[in-house]
Design a protein around this nucleic acid. Structure first.
Lengths: 130, 130
DNA sequence: CGCATATATGCAAGTTTATGCATATATTTG
DNA sequence: CAAATATATGCATAAACTTGCATATATGCG
């Protein structure tokens, strides 16, 4: 019961649903999620942890990388049902499709690299304007 | 998408799940829900409204009574899937079973009557104690 | 060991949510 | 129409949640 509430709580947020959608595509590390959804590193990390705590994801470590994926085997039956229903609800959604496309283009580079790229963008803008 | 978030938000609360469980048994009015779960009138009313707004319930009026029930026909397909998965998750849960039993004993009397009964209980207690 | 790097987390500020109380609304009945 | 009654809701307050920033933790490498 408390578990079920926790599951619904974690699913009741747009960003977290978008992360779940990415993981339906494939296993992801934190830095890929932050790239694909253009969110901060801490936010990406927290969302993945929350989905993990709810029993939806598994975690595999590969060196410095934390690789999260949907725990298709380990999930309780009812949880599997809920995730499947959610998957069907995503079907055809524009945002979800675009997110997955951005994920395909994402590279497994760390968050510090992403941060540098963002800064470069920010610095370049004034030049374009003036 | 916004709809899906709303659905999960409404399901991410123990009281609201317990109300949904009651409605799986049968159509209920506000006063029956407040009796079965021993919650305030405003809380019962708000929970039913929230489930209604999320598209899970329908409302039928009979005189002063507002009769809510699960909108099995009107629900979107994905919503039906989610509600069914939720139903399966309830299976065997002690709290849910007890709630349903209390619902069977509940009478369709209004909230003011329930309030009087509660007060009577409160007044009687000191006599038993001293 | 010390540096680089990917991820996790403590804290604070802002926002949202839950709920009791009082009251409004709406319907029935006499 | 007025009284009774079932439900809905405005408001205030407390609790919970979200998120950015800074920093801690953990791993790999030279």
């Amino acid at each position: 019961m408390r578990e079920l509430v926790k599951v619904y709580k974690v699913l009741s947020d747009e960003s977290r649903l978008r992360v779940l959608n990415l993981l339906l595509e494939r296993e992801c590390c934190v830095c890929e999620v932050m790239q694909a959804l253009d969110i901060s590193q801490s936010k990406a990390s927290r969302i993945l942890s929350a989905l993990y705590d709810a029993g939806i994801l598994t975690l595999r470590r590969d060196g410095l990388w934390a690789l999260y994926s949907i725990d298709r085997d380990g999930m309780d039956a009812y949880l599997k049902d809920i995730v499947e229903a959610t998957t069907r609800a995503f079907k055809g959604n524009k945002v979800m499709i675009a997110d997955r496309e951005r994920l395909m283009r994402a590279e497994r580079v760390g968050p510090s690299c992403v941060k540098k790229m963002r800064n470069a963008d920010t610095i370049r803008q004034p030049q374009t304007q003036s």
